[in-house]
């Protein structure tokens, strides 16, 4: 069993062709710009969509733990809530939702196989995303052979934060790896993502040796990792690993508004005054260092 918070079909930006993206829940990193904050915790959670609530308080009766609050912007007492989902089931407005559902490998397989015709025609497949899919390595060890047996292409999107042994075991089961390189300076990495990058970089170098279909990606966060210095270091690192290209993912703050919905205490992260051409400038900086940079949407 593994916990997923979303399955999105017809994804076209998470690898080649038409894909179904599986969003695994749980992540060892706490990137401050995280676009899916609901992916961080490994357990189920109740999300509160304040703007949809009509304050009918059906949820109040449904909750057996008296965890319903009547504050304007909060409905759930997170200390009492065990995310059983009873309140979400009675909510007529979909203002309360249970985020995170357990899947068995076979159920998940059945779900993704439905789009196999589209995968095959478009050269697509599934993409393991999240959260950090590698946190579910045991599950993946069971699930991915089934995917492979169905002839479905599998892409792994990872932060690279895992033991190398885990990664190495999965290599025969995936066709493509998108690997995030967020920041080269380990201290800065720790400051912005909660963990140092030593292991991540080691894993990248290891994969570069052992797995040909490894693609580096970088979410470009203006003012955080688009400095000339970071770009130069990243480019040098890539060249040392015999890699010649990187995907650049534009920054957006669409994850921010999800934070209050979860009652999370994560600090808000705002970048003011994003320069107009930060992406193209980043691309050019990479190109100057002989790394082919592709802006990815």
């Amino acid at each position: 069993m593994a916990i997923l918070f979303d399955i999105q079909r017809f994804c076209i930006h998470d690898g080649p062709g038409v894909r179904t993206t599986l969003f695994f829940k749980g992540c060892p990193l706490r990137c401050r710009w995280c676009q899916n904050p609901e992916s961080q915790s490994t357990g189920p959670q109740i999300a509160f969509y304040q703007e949809k609530c009509i304050e009918c308080f059906e949820c109040l009766e449904a909750c057996s733990r008296a965890a319903i609050l009547s504050l304007a912007d909060q409905r759930i007492d997170r200390d009492l809530c065990n995310a059983c989902g009873d309140c979400a089931r009675v909510c007529n407005q979909d203002a309360l939702r249970l985020v995170g559902k357990d899947w068995t490998a076979l159920d998940l397989l059945e779900d993704i196989v439905a789009d196999r015709d589209f995968f095959l025609d478009s050269g697509g497949g599934i993409t393991l995303s999240g959260g950090e899919p590698l946190m579910h390595w045991e599950f993946l060890g069971e699930f991915l052979p089934l995917v492979r047996a169905e002839g479905i292409h599998a892409t792994l999107e990872t932060s690279g934060m895992a033991g190398y042994a885990v990664l190495k075991d999965l290599l025969p089961l995936v066709d493509l790896i998108y690997f995030d390189l967020k920041l080269m300076d380990s201290r800065a990495h720790a400051r912005f993502t909660g963990v140092p990058n030593t292991r991540i970089l080691e894993n990248f170098s290891g994969l570069a040796r052992d797995f040909p279909k490894l693609q580096a990606r970088m979410p470009v966060i203006p003012g955080v990792n688009d400095s000339d210095q970071n770009i130069a270091q990243t480019a040098a690192f890539l060249r040392r690993a015999n890699k010649t290209s990187i995907h650049l993912l534009p920054y957006h703050n669409l994850g921010q508004a999800k934070i209050p919905r979860l009652g999370s205490e994560a600090e808000p992260f705002e970048i003011s005054g994003i320069p107009d051409h930060y992406l193209t400038q980043t691309r050019e900086a990479f190109e100057r260092k002989d790394i082919h940079a592709i802006i990815y949407d």
Partner: peptide, 29 residues
């Protein structure tokens, strides 16, 4: 809404998020 690695339907976005998405797409990203 399809953005790499991002999970949501447009109508589940808050007004601010919708603004952000519109801003982003109007830039052709």
């Amino acid at each position: 809404v399809r953005i790499s690695g991002y999970s949501a339907y447009f109508n589940d976005l808050t007004p601010q998020m919708k603004e952000e998405l519109i801003r982003r797409t109007s830039m052709g990203l």
